[in-house]
């Protein structure tokens, strides 16, 4: 079995802070990390490998420094790592990103043996963009079924059985066949930490394979900004508007004042 895990390098905080004086982003001291959900995806791949045997390939698209997250994946126990990096990939929306990832997966699938199964695992979303779109779009590119928001996973013979959270109160149990793409929630497992020997292997024994647009034989109209249907037109720090009254006086007076205002607003 082959397992593909798609991972993304993201800023290490889920909220980028704004400097209130200059109204600009505070970027200093923010480390880059593996998207936390993608670590759950790696952990799931490792546990499948331990149970059923598999070769795990981690794939990331990003600038050259995204190599760091692939090293971490290798240190956790992933077998192979591919970094899709090329200036031509820059500015990709989720459609172009999923296309680029699919080219790499299809290329590696050329080595797939007859009757060998494969599965693609993604985190349910990235904490920076928060769209959760690349998984389903990648499944469509690969023409395989998808199951998103997975919190439990098992393989039974030829079948994959998962629990998908589709409402706060309900979980649906779905059975499907190989190949399949699943996107996982953080509830599914607790990702392991790399071991010392894992870290040493990641730097000394394992290597990162680089793929650019040319090697992927990518159609320029389908990658990067040109392959993106959506375009960022404007980025801004929101202004807050409306009437704001800061009440004054003693606590009793302020509370009294508040209640009168709320009565006037027909809340009380």
């Amino acid at each position: 079995m082959k397992i593909f895990v798609c991972i993304k390098q993201v800023p290490g905080v889920s909220e980028v802070k704004i400097d209130p004086k200059t109204n600009t982003l505070v970027r200093e001291g923010i480390p880059s990390i593996i998207n936390p959900y993608d670590k759950n995806a790696i952990e799931l791949a490792l546990s499948i490998k331990e149970k059923h045997g598999a070769e795990i390939t981690a794939i990331s698209m990003g600038p050259p420094q995204a190599e760091e997250v692939l090293r971490e994946a290798l240190a956790m126990g992933v077998d192979k790592a591919f970094l899709l990096t090329d200036k031509a990939f820059a500015g990709a929306d989720t459609l172009a990103t999923s296309h680029t990832l699919s080219l790499a997966i299809k290329k590696i699938l050329e080595e797939l043996k007859k009757d060998e199964k494969y599965i693609v695992i993604c985190g349910s979303q990235a904490i920076d963009g928060d769209t959760g779109q690349v998984g389903p779009e990648l499944a469509e590119e690969l023409n395989i079924p998808q199951i998103t928001y997975v919190q439990k996973f098992q393989i039974k013979g030829d079948k994959v059985i998962v629990e998908r959270v589709f409402r706060t109160e309900e979980v649906v149990v779905i059975e499907t066949n190989f190949p399949v793409l699943i996107s996982v929630l953080s509830e599914i497992n607790i990702p392991r930490n790399p071991t010392m020997s894992g870290i040493v292997d990641a730097y000394q024994k394992k290597e990162i394979h680089y793929l650019d647009a040319e090697r992927l034989k990518a159609d320029k109209a389908k990658i990067g900004l040109d392959g993106s249907m959506t375009q960022v037109w404007k980025i801004f720090i929101p202004e807050r508007k409306g009437e704001h009254i800061i009440l004054t006086g003693t606590i009793e007076e302020m509370v009294q004042n508040l209640c009168e205002n709320l009565k006037e607003d027909k809340i009380f």
Binding site: P11, V13, S14, E15, V16, K17, I18, L25, I127, D128, G129, D130, T230, Q231, V232, W233, K234, I235, F236, I237, P238
Partner: peptide, 11 residues
């Protein structure tokens, strides 16, 4: 986007 501290307008 970016956890909500920034807004992006997309077309």
């Amino acid at each position: 986007t970016f956890g909500g501290n920034i807004m992006a307008t997309i077309k």
